[in-house]
Amino acid sequence: MMLTIRAHLWRFLPAFFLIGIMWLLWKALYIKNIPEDQISSKPFPSFSLNDVRHEEKAVTLADLQGQVSIVHVWASWCDVCVREHQEWLNIINQWPYPLVGMVYRDDANTVKTILAEKGDPFTLLLNDRTGQLGVDLGIVGTPETFIVDANGVIRYHHLGAIDQAYFESELLPVLKQLNGNDVG
C-alpha cells in the first residue's frame, strides 16, 4: 500500500515544481522592490548646495535642523512634477509647514521661469545639479517627498506625486505628531 502511494507521489512532482515556481513568481511580483525602510529612519545626508533663487547662498544640513521640514525632490524636465506644483502651492497655502524644494539635475533658469509663472511655495530651494545629494538620499526618480524631523532624521518617504487629499491623509498626521500637535 505504502509502496503504491510512493509510486504515485512521483507523478505529482511536476505539479509541486510548478507550484514552487508560481510561488516564486508571486513573491517577485508582489513584494516591493525597494523597501521603504531603506530610506526612512536614516539621518538626512549632509550637504552644501546653493539655493536656486540666491546662488550666492550656501544651504547646509544645519539649515534643515531645529524644525520639522518637508523635503520635495522635483525637476522642471519632469512633467509629473510640474503638474504637481499647483498641489504644493495649495497645500502650503493651507498648511504653512517649511517646504524645502530640491531641484534634481536641472537648469536653474528653467526652474526660475516655472516659479515666476506658477508661484513659489518653497522656503529653501536646493540646487542638486550633479545629483549627488539624490544618490546620497537613495532616490529612484522624481518626484519624491520626505519628512525630516528637527534632528535631521528622515521620518517619512513617499515615491511619486502627492495631491492635497493624500497630503492630508498621509503626511499631515506625521507632521502633526512630530510637531507635538501644535503647529499647522
Partner: peptide
C-alpha cells in the same frame, strides 16, 4: 528602469550614480 544596468541607462538617476 530596472531592466537596464547604469552603463546603458539614460535615466537621470543612473547618470548621477555614474558621476558618483
Amino acid at each position: 528602469c530596472p531592466n537596464q544596468n547604469i552603463a546603458e541607462s539614460h535615466a537621470p538617476v543612473a547618470k548621477a550614480m555614474q558621476a558618483e
